[in-house]
Design a binder for these strands. Structure first.
Lengths: 92, 92
DNA sequence: CATGACCGTTATACTAATACCGGTATAACA
DNA sequence: TGTTATACCGGTATTAGTATAACGGTCATG
């Protein structure tokens, strides 16, 4: 009946999302990107560090736009390993 | 210092997002789509009716996947009219 | 040593996500 | 007509969590 707490898998996905965004940011400063996306730097920092595991849609969309990311690919990249694919390319 | 309340423009954008999702759903039932996306029907209903103006990224992503929507297009479609484009195709 | 960029923590207001209730509308059917 | 079933809506309640800000700390680099 109430909002269930985020599962460890969802937390991990948040961390992956943050890592992907940080990677895409490259050597640009957080301030620069945050301003470009129209969000506070503090919020960007929390998202990148994974402390915000389920950010708002439009926030991520704005960041994706600024960073030149394809949202669909981004989702696929950090998706939950629900079915646990046989071969993972992460460590390979 | 605290989270500012959502602006009317953001509320309106939420309504547009919901409308777009409902349009994409077509004649499929809410229950059907919600289950497919892995979210509760109540949540889908709230998003479609615009009562959740800034839904979570992964929630919208899941719906977009089920409904075969391109997230980038979806964002562009419901984007805030910040710069107010000269010609709108809505009523034209 | 000063500046710039980032991190970690703390605090708080507002919101998403969720569930349950009764209500409305339509369609099928006895 | 009355009943049943499906589908959607609006309101309410509750908790977890985002979004946000401010402070101080760290680590480079100049």
């Amino acid at each position: 009946m109430v909002r269930p707490i985020l599962s460890p898998a969802e937390r991990a996905r948040g961390r992956r999302l943050g890592a992907a965004l940080r990677r895409a940011r490259g050597d640009r400063s957080m301030v620069d990107v945050a301003i470009a996306a129209g969000i506070p730097v503090e919020t960007l920092r929390k998202i990148e560090t994974g402390r915000i595991a389920t950010p708002a849609f439009f926030t991520v969309a704005a960041l994706g736009g600024v960073l030149g990311l394809d949202l669909a690919s981004l989702v696929a990249e950090v998706a939950l390993p629900e079915v646990a694919p046989a071969a993972d390319a992460a460590t390979a």
